[in-house]
Write a protein that binds this DNA or RNA. Structure first.
Lengths: 198, 198
DNA sequence: AGTCTTAAGACGACCGGTCGTTTATTAAGG
DNA sequence: CCTTAATAAACGACCGGTCGTCTTAAGACT
């Protein structure tokens, strides 16, 4: 067998580069040539690793969300005593990723997924499943905080979780338009600092 | 001159169709052929009305936001006594547009703009200006409500306005993923029903 | 150990199709 | 009749995807 480069590094490399470019230019705005050129991988090799561009996009969503959950859990488990603070820490960690221009956050993936939804129903289902997991998880922590009297109880935990996600996603869009990280910082701090607290 | 059709109807028609398709498939995901076919306009005619696709996109943003402001003001002026209720009414009106599948809302335009930002700095500036107008306006009403004691005063009006926008925009993305209008309904009602009130 | 066989991965040229855009021709109005 | 907008056809560039060739290393056999 011929193995000039290590395939175990090329595949993740393509996924990584792909996500970064998708985050910047969008799914339809990014060509495969651009991806392989950036990754210094021949175009022909791309299809040794992925069946199609759509498959590739789906794989990015799955691959990244797995990575995301790992970080999420290791972060949120570290602060089990205060569910609200634990959530806040998670968001702060994701914020740091944005500052580092890694853009590897859950919501960027959501934007990519939304772009793919129209042509790929399968993609919509995949993303919806991940979103449901995410919302259920956040809602769980909010509910805990509510029971402990740390968070307001006049609103449903599920609805609050959705609100968090919507705000976070939306602020990323505003980040693009304002060309600044401030919107994301601001909205998240407002949510945690004022609106969620009892 | 040769004028088989009225140009005053074709131009708005193209803008209308363009926005609808952009909202569904995104800027890069929509071809000019698709636009002109839907509008039953010959492809060659497109460039009689618009210099380029980018110009067209920019024009959609400007044209729609003008239309948006008109509706906005006529709606918000009708209920000057209660600034909070006035805002709420505005959001409800926009919600109805979503239900009617007209998708002609400000935030859809923002998604299109965000997609164009990468290649067109001019577009970013245009959208940012409109966004600033929007946020300043909403913040103004929130501030009024705060002074009247109708809205919570423990958070800055500008920050609350931004939060509204972020949430609204984000919920539209969730709408795509969940393939349902509920997310938009839910988030807006939560904001007005619980979080903004004193 | 050395040699041969074999096949999976690397690779770039290339495919048909579609993209955004231009242009040559047509036909109507002043 | 001349101007000018409308339009179909055509443009080159580029898209996602395929193809055949080349390279190289693992296993078979001596």
């Amino acid at each position: 067998m011929a193995r000039l480069k290590n395939p175990d590094t090329i595949r993740p490399l393509l996924l990584e580069v792909g996500l970064t470019l998708f985050a910047k230019r969008g799914y339809h705005g990014t060509g495969i040539k651009e991806i392989v050129d950036t990754a210094h991988v021949p175009k022909g090799s791309f299809y040794n690793y992925f069946k199609s561009k759509e498959e590739f996009g789906m794989e990015i969503i799955r691959w990244h969300s797995a990575d995301f959950w790992q970080k999420w859990h290791s972060s949120i488990d570290a602060n089990a005593a205060d569910p609200l603070q634990a959530l806040h820490d998670c968001f702060d960690i994701m914020l740091v990723e944005h500052i580092d221009c890694a853009v590897n956050t859950f919501c960027v993936v959501a934007h990519v997924a939304a772009e793919m939804c129209e042509t790929s129903p399968e993609c919509r289902i995949t993303m919806k499943t991940l979103l449901d997991d995410m919302l259920r998880n956040v809602a769980g922590y909010i509910q805990k905080a509510q029971r402990l009297g740390l968070a307001r109880s006049d609103a449903d935990a599920n609805e609050l979780a959705s609100l968090f996600w919507d705000t976070w996603t939306g602020s990323i869009l505003r980040m693009k338009i304002e060309d600044s990280i401030e919107p994301v910082k601001q909205s998240v701090s407002l949510l945690f600092g004022r609106l969620l607290k009892k």
